[in-house]
Design a protein around this nucleic acid. Structure first.
Length: 452
RNA sequence: GGCGACGUGGCCAAGUGGCUAAGGCGAAGGUCUGCAAAACCUUUAUUCGCGGGUUCGAAUCCCGCCGUCGCCUCCA
């Protein structure tokens, strides 16, 4: 398949030695619950992961938790907890939500605070190699020492240094230098180090984890586009400087960001959308369809009406897999649909076009049903490729306000009324069931119902 | 200011030189029904922000203009 590499700004053929893929995806900072933007990102990397496995690659995916940083400390102080409790709570919320979204778990979820030894090792190495310097109990990476600095975000260090800044850290030689080890202020959590008590800077943990869990070079490094600079740029600098290599990650894959009414969703704008809340209103499949129906590198505008549309769309696929086949005929072949699906996915994870073929399959299934054809292979393909994109197509579980027995009783009453042509009474009972969250439908075979 | 993305039917969204411009939602008509609902079927852009140009041929390439957004500070 071809995948867009942010490093080269081109779509490139993806290959891997021995068909074995090492994939690192940047995880969350655990100071709050996951929001819809996290859901988008991890749905995309989950889909990528699944598709690579479908193509025959063995994927080893590692995703970190940044479980110590300034915002976590702030949150802990605000909520009278310690930073570890804040992180634990939000890691639990993360798994809870992502499991519901049917996102496959990564192979490992390392936490920054469990990698302190490795982090200190890399920082020491960088100091020895004179890429980093200690100053005021903190350690900084000197961007001017690393000649490739800017190669991912396509920035020029000298131009950056000309720009003005207002919050210059006095300990830095150049303001563009970034912190590897941050000295602890009184009352802050800390770990012992050769430079005094402190905690790791934001970027260094990823370098340490990649090296520790995946090795010196990885095949894919992923995350949101907002991480390109400075986070990933700095990761490259640290890792390549420490290891003396120039190819820390072969492919850099970045997803577009969720926007709200044209603006980016972010804490500072106060327009975050909680995934837990979304999952109470919409099914996992609908949220996933909403995400994957637009290309992963494009921004995704959050408009709840669009998720509602997706909810209706997904039910079309759910209905199609329940169609009965006429076994007396030869099955209609699904091959052309499958070919189109694969072709779409092979072009930079083209999920929108791939999903279009799932709807084409659904239409072919319904038509086949009307023509009394054997659609067994079409249904098999629809199930298989929906699953590949992470859809489960199970009927949605809904709120229970009335027992099954009571529903059946009301339906019997209504059908008595109908057979006596007491339509006013039967419509009243139908409205009552509707208000209790039960949708009924009449057919020649009788009345059926479902919770809505 | 620097780097980048985008502008396709009522809405969302594929397509990036050449068959009838995917797919979804919505809408209209139909089948079904006591009427509905649900479901399914059919229809729904001579046209791709605007203006030039290249070409036998452009939504797709080039130039200009207008508009929207992201990153450059913590962020998936």
């Amino acid at each position: 398949m071809k995948i867009y590499n942010s490093l080269t700004r081109k779509k490139e053929d993806f290959t891997a030695t021995n068909n074995s893929v090492n994939m690192y995806v940047c995880g969350v900072t655990t100071y709050d619950k996951p929001h819809i933007g996290h859901a988008m990102s991890y749905i995309i990397f989950d889909t990528f992961h699944r598709y690579l496995e479908y193509l025959g690659f063995t994927v080893n995916r590692v995703q970190n938790f940044t479980d110590i940083d300034d915002k976590i400390i702030d949150r802990a102080n605000k909520d009278s907890l310690d930073s570890n409790q804040v992180s634990e709570k939000n890691i639990k919320a993360y798994f809870d939500v992502m499991d519901k979204l049917n996102i496959k778990r990564a192979n490992h979820y390392p936490r920054a605070t469990n990698e302190i030894k490795e982090i200190i090792g890399i920082i020491s190495n960088l100091i020895e190699r004179e890429y980093a310097y200690e100053s005021g109990g903190s350690v900084y990476f000197s961007v001017k020492k690393f000649k490739d600095y800017g190669k991912l975000s396509h920035r020029n260090v000298d131009e950056m240094l000309e720009a003005t800044r207002f919050d210059v850290d006095e300990n830095k030689i150049n303001f563009a230098d970034f912190v590897l080890w941050k000295s602890a202020k009184p009352g802050e959590p800390f770990w012992d180090s050769p430079w005094g008590n402190g905690r790791p800077g934001w970027h260094i943990e990823c370098s340490a984890m990649v090296l520790h869990h995946l090795g010196e070079q990885i095949d894919i490094h992923g995350g949101g586009q907002d991480l390109v600079f400075p986070h990933h740029e700095n990761e490259i600098a640290q890792s390549e400087a420490a290891l003396g290599v120039n190819s820390f990650a072969r492919f850099w894959v970045h997803n577009g960001l969720v926007q709200m009414d044209g603006d980016k969703m972010s804490k500072s704008l106060g327009n975050v959308f909680d995934v837990e809340v979304a999952l109470k209103k919409y099914t996992s499949d609908a949220i996933r369809l909403w995400v994957l129906q637009s290309h992963y590198r494009k921004p995704l505008n959050l408009d709840e009406n669009h998720i509602i549309s997706s909810e209706k769309s997904i039910s079309r696929l759910r209905n199609a897999i329940d169609i009965e086949s006429n076994q007396d005929k030869q099955p209609i072949s699904s091959q052309t649909y499958i070919d189109k699906f694969i072709q779409s996915m092979n072009d930079d994870l083209g999920t929108p076009a791939a999903i279009a073929t799932l709807f084409d399959l659904a239409r072919a299934i319904f038509r086949g049903r009307d023509n009394k054809d054997n659609v067994i292979d079409l249904i098999k393909a629809l199930k298989k490729y929906s699953k590949l994109l992470g859809f489960d197509l199970k009927p949605s579980k809904k709120n229970i306000q009335i027992s099954e027995k009571d529903i059946e009783e009301l339906i019997d009453l209504r059908n008595d009324a109908r057979s006596n042509k007491l339509f006013e009474e039967s419509d009243r009972l139908r409205d009552k069931l509707q208000s209790l969250g039960v949708q009924i439908s009449d057919s020649p075979e009788g009345t059926t119902w479902e919770r809505i």
